[in-house]
Every structure is written in C-alpha cells, then in structure tokens.
C-alpha cells in the first residue's frame, strides 16, 4: 500500500511541475522546473510522517549531493546538444551515467570516506 501511495504522490507532483514547465515562457525560465523538487516533496513528506525528522534530514543531506550531480548532468546535456548535435533522447540517456558517477563519487568522498 505504501508503494502505491508513493507512486500516486510522485506521479501527481511530477506531473504538476512538468505541466508548469510546459506552459511557462520563456523556455529558460520553464527549464527551472526541470529541477523542481517534485520527487523530493512526495518522498520526504512520507519519510517525515513514517520515519521522523532525523531520517528525512539524512535524505536532505544526500539530496544536496544529488543536486550537485544534477547540475553536472544538466551542463553536460546542454553542451552535448549544442556541440555534438545528438538527439535529446540519446544525450539525456548517456548523461545519466555522469549523474551516477558524480552523485556516488561525491557521496563516497564526502560521506562514506
């Protein structure tokens, strides 16, 4: 049941932010919603209710690292699309490797080491 709630909440919040990103102009402003805390809002609300503040705080700390990885990912996607003229699908899929590398690299360097 918990996973159904997670799915519905995650889907609803992500869709709402995506819709905002669609209708807002200019495009550079709408792009801000590509990095909206959509999954975070749903997940952290459940975490706060079920596991409490300390647990949510640990997730928040890792989220800061994840957002650094997202910045690197976005920069890479932007540069690849402009310089190498690859399709958006291929570019975003390839750049996901960079997200994992930066996110887990920073986590290891800052939190686990």
């Amino acid at each position: 049941m918990e996973y159904v709630i997670r799915f519905l909440m995650g889907g609803a919040v992500v869709s709402a932010f995506a819709l905002l990103g669609d209708i807002l102009r200019p495009k550079s402003f709408a792009g801000l919603f590509g990095a909206a805390p959509s999954v975070a809002l749903a997940t952290l609300s459940i975490a706060l209710l079920q596991q409490g503040g300390q647990y949510a705080a640990l997730e928040g700390r890792s989220m800061v690292i994840g957002s650094t990885a997202l910045a690197a990912y976005s920069f890479l996607v932007c540069q690849m699309l402009i310089r190498f003229r690859t399709t958006a699908l291929r570019t975003t899929a390839l750049a996901a490797i960079a997200w994992f590398a930066v996110a887990f690299g920073l986590k290891y360097a800052l939190l686990d080491w």
């Binding site: 550079s28 402003f29 590509g34 975070a40 800061v64 976005s74």
Partner: peptide, 21 residues
C-alpha cells in the same frame, strides 16, 4: 535551453535539500 534552465534550477534544489537537512 531547457537543460541550461535545469542547471540553474539545481542550485535551488540544493537549497531545498539543505533546508530539510
């Protein structure tokens, strides 16, 4: 252009995480 916007938005996402942390 959308990706560039998301890059700037990731700073704000970091602040979101920082507040919760």
């Amino acid at each position: 252009l959308d990706a560039a916007g998301a890059g700037w938005g990731s700073i704000a996402l970091g602040v979101f995480g920082l507040c919760v942390w």
